[in-house]
Design a protein around this nucleic acid. Structure first.
Lengths: 190, 190
DNA sequence: CTAATTTGCCTAAAGTCATTAGGCAAACGT
DNA sequence: ACGTTTGCCTAATGACTTTAGGCAAATTAG
C-alpha cells in the first residue's frame, strides 16, 4: 500500500536503465520485475500501473535532459550556446535511447505541467537572448528549434540517416550552422 | 492459410481507421477483430502477427502521405512547393493522427526499403531544385526539412504548442517563411 | 526495550492478449 | 459436378496486467 517510499525511486531508475537496454516500448511491469528479481505484483506497491510507470520514467528522463542541457549552456552564448544545447540533447539521446524515447512519451496534461518541460523552453529562450529577435519571433524560434532537435534526433535514432552519405554528423554540424545563420537573420513576416 | 487475399487489404485499411480513432499504439489484433465483428484468431489469416499488422498500417500511411504530398507539389516550385508539401504533411497528420503516428513507426530495414520513404526524399529533392544548393547541401537540407516537419507535427500532435500564445498556425507560417529564407541563403561551411 | 506501524514483498486469482493448430462451409474456376 | 481457395471458427496455451489480502522485517514511538 506504500504509495511512495525510497524503493519507488529505485524502481523508476531501474525502469529507465531497462528502457535503455531493451527500448522504452518494451518496458513492462513484468519485465522490470524480472530484472529486479521480484514478483510482478510487488511492483504495484511503488507504481500505480504500467502507464504510471512509463510516465515516471518519462519525467525522470525530462529532468535528466534538462540537467545536462543546463550544464552544457552554462557560461556560453550565441552559437556556442546553441551548439552546446543541441549537442547535449543529441548526446543524451545516443547515450540513453530508451530514456530519450521516454522523454517523447505523451504525458497527460497534469503530468506535463509538473514536468521539466518548462525548464526546456526557458533554456531555449535564454539561448535566443543572444540573437536579436522580438518576443513573438522568439516563440516561433523556440518552436522551430524544438522541432529540429526532436525531429532530427528521432529520425537519426530510427536509422533514417544511416544508409546514405554523408554521415549524419556532417549534416548535424551544417544544420547547426544554418540555424545560427537563420537566427541571426530571421526574416520579417511577409 | 491465405497469406494474401482481397480481404487482407480490407483488414489493414480497417486497422488504419481504427488507429485514427483510438491511436496507433492501441491498435491490436483483438481490438481490430472486435471492430470487424470477427474472432481474433481469424485475423491471423491475413496478418502474420501484431507487429506485421502495425508494419502494414505504417506502409499504407507512408504511401498515402506520399500521394497527398505528390499531389500538393505538382505544378509548383520554390516556396510555393515547399509550403504545399509542408502543409500536405501537416494536414494529413491532423486529419489522420493514427495513420501519421503509424508513419513514424520504426520499420525493420527490409520493410523500410520497400516503403514509400524513397518517394518522400525524392520529392524533397525535387522541391530543393528550386533553390541554389550543391548536391551535399541538398542532402543536409533534406534532413533538416524532414526533421522540422516530423518534429513540428509530432510536437503539435502531442499538444506541445496548444497552451501558449501565439497559435500554432502562426508559428507554422513563420517557420515556413524562415526555412524558405534559409534555403535561399544557405551559409557556406565554416 | 517492547509494541505499533510502516515497508516491501508474496501468493492467489481473474481477466485480457497474442498466437498456433486444425476444421468447416461457401465461392469459384475447370 | 469437383477440387481448390478463401474466410472464418473453435479450442488451447502461455504471457501480461491488475486487484486483494497476508506476512515478516525494519523502523519508530512510548
Amino acid at each position: 500500500m506504500a504509495k511512495t517510499g525510497p524503493a519507488a525511486e529505485r524502481v523508476v531508475r531501474a525502469g529507465a536503465e531497462l528502457a535503455d537496454e531493451i527500448g522504452f516500448e518494451q518496458v513492462t511491469p513484468s519485465e522490470l520485475a524480472r530484472r529486479l528479481g521480484v514478483r510482478t505484483a510487488s511492483l504495484y506497491s511503488h507504481v500505480r500501473n504500467a502507464h504510471d510507470l512509463k510516465t515516471k520514467i518519462a519525467l525522470l528522463a525530462l529532468e535528466e535532459l534538462a540537467d545536462v542541457a543546463a550544464a552544457a549552456i552554462a557560461g556560453r552564448a550565441g552559437k556556442d550556446a546553441l551548439s552546446a544545447f543541441a549537442n547535449a540533447y543529441r548526446d543524451y539521446a545516443r547515450r540513453h535511447p530508451g530514456r530519450f524515447a521516454a522523454a517523447q512519451f505523451r504525458l497527460d496534461p497534469d503530468a506535463a505541467a509538473a514536468s521539466a518541460g518548462v525548464r526546456h523552453s526557458r533554456m531555449m529562450r535564454a539561448i535566443l537572448r543572444g540573437y536579436d529577435l522580438t518576443e513573438v519571433q522568439q516563440t516561433h524560434a523556440v518552436r522551430l528549434l524544438g522541432s529540429v532537435f526532436s525531429g532530427y534526433v528521432g529520425l537519426e535514432a530510427a536509422g533514417g540517416f544511416s544508409h546514405s552519405a554523408p554521415a549524419s554528423q556532417e549534416s548535424w554540424t551544417e544544420i547547426l550552422g544554418a540555424l545560427d545563420a537563420l537566427l541571426r537573420n530571421w526574416p520579417a513576416p511577409s
